[in-house]
Amino acid sequence: MIFTLIQKEFILEWRQRYAINGIILYLASTVFICYMSFNLKLGLVDPIIWNALFWVIILFTAVNAVAKSFLQESYGRTLYYFSLVKPESFIISKTIYYSGLLLLMSILGFLFYAFVMGNPVQDKFMYLLVLCLGSIGLSSTLTLTSAIASKASNSSSLMAVLSFPIIIPLLLVLIKASKNAMDGLDRSVYTDQLLTLVAINALIMGFSYLLFPYLWRS
């Protein structure tokens, strides 16, 4: 069931290729704007700023990419799903799909970012792992907030207002862990941060799994 739903998301996405292209372009132009406005290459940009800036770019891209997950669904189609599938499988499929999408986006973003701004990352594997955990966490938080925001009026601005404060704890740990990976510290030093990330992800997913059925009913 979940698999079919993911497949359906994929087909829908493929039919509206312009949307995903738009997101990629959004990512690329944001990176470029950052590059132009700092007007500097690596070495002049502080590694801390390099890292924080990258996460801010990813955050904004994620909000834009995931915002459409529920906002794009028309009323009639939602009713149709409602009669067909269980809400739990619906939210799980959405979360998995958008985690994948976001992971793809953040890797693309990372490559482009490293291409123009230089790449100071030393422990690339761990950085990728943090990126992976980050995409999952961001997408699961944003999927539920987008579901919440889609029920209210003026939803697109509400989306940012609702999700940003919730994401801050996750983002703080992400920035800290990725900074450690960037500096190439010994991996045992920040395993507890990675564990915290996993735990936060699990917490958020657990809550969205529990809460979504109530949202679905209305």
Partner: peptide, 27 residues
């Protein structure tokens, strides 16, 4: 405040309340 229907407002507000609290725990 951005939801007009009273039932909807309570339900969605409640969901956000719980979700936000969950996100606050790590913080």
């Amino acid at each position: 405040n951005s939801i007009n229907d009273e039932q909807q407002r309570g339900r969605i507000g409640g969901i956000y309340n719980i979700f936000a609290f969950a996100a606050l725990i790590p913080l």
